[in-house]
Design a protein around this nucleic acid. Structure first.
Lengths: 152, 152
DNA sequence: CTATTCGTAGTCGGGGTGACTACGAATAAA
DNA sequence: TTTATTCGTAGTCACCCCGACTACGAATAG
């Protein structure tokens, strides 16, 4: 039922993978738009969070764009998760009748479970590097990767 | 960023705890409204899911209401999670440019991670019973538990 | 100086969630 | 049988968040 809106995490992994395939030269958000189905502004917002986390760097102007700050083998999905999630809980707590002892106890219990599960998720994601989720680049040319639509 | 809307899970645990504290007599959704800060219709919808999962039973009419179908020690939070979540993924996938090899690979990878994390979360929640999250009932009277607001 | 690209503010539409009303069905008690 | 209680469910509504999109300013390479 809870239609999750975690597009940002998926987009983050997508762009990190793209940048990992083009470590030499910067990639502009406009170019990434053609691979990720999202508009440049949204991409830049996600990339901004990744930059705050020190995962990517940006440079304006001609021949500018985005680059990884570390090799893909040293960036984990947990890094991307934390950069995007930014402390938002997996579960949501609910408002209870103040003064109800059961409600207060439930809230406290759920908070603990939330912290435990969050830690577990992050630990598992920390075991996966961006390099390990990158497709085998040797089978594609650089142009294929950057311009999947084969535009003019 | 992803403002989670998992109120249903919290509500489910809340009502299961309430019902666990009143195993002898049924509790109406109207009474539960006073402890859980939600309206009766919404409660009945959540309870309906729990009933589909075989966790609770209902009976209409005077002196009717809801009751657990199993003792609280035999109901896990994982049971409630599955009943409420109903297969919804924790992560959301995003639409990618069809034909892009990177996008297809990412989608597949994310799907696998989603399944892995979901299984992990469920396994952890299966290790917690409703009985273990119930506050020490011996310190409260039955009236306190059912009518926390001490209404007339 | 110009073209390119980032940076960000601001607006807009869609979808989901939960509150609320309303009414029918089932059941216990008189 | 009649009545009151409670579940069951359809339907509407407002709110919030996400992501798309426009617009414009700032920075930089040539």
């Amino acid at each position: 039922m809870a239609g999750p809106t975690n597009t940002q995490f998926a987009v983050a992994i997508h762009v990190l993978t793209l940048l990992g395939g083009s470590e030499a030269t910067p990639v502009s958000s406009d170019v990434m738009t053609e691979s990720v189905a999202a508009n440049p502004v949204y991409l830049r917002r996600v990339l901004g969070r990744l930059r705050e986390a020190g995962l990517v760097g940006s440079r304006p102007g001609p021949r500018g764009g985005w680059q990884l700050q570390r090799p893909p083998s040293e960036i984990t999905l947990g890094d991307a998760w934390r950069a995007v999630q930014d402390g938002a809980p997996i579960f949501g707590l609910h408002a209870v009748q103040p003064g109800c002892p059961v409600g207060a106890s439930i809230t406290e219990t759920l908070g603990g479970i939330d912290r435990q599960l969050t830690a577990s998720v992050e630990a598992q994601l920390d075991g996966i590097t961006v390099a390990s989720v990158m497709p085998d680049l040797s089978t594609f040319s650089a142009e294929e990767l950057v311009l999947p639509g084969a535009k003019s």
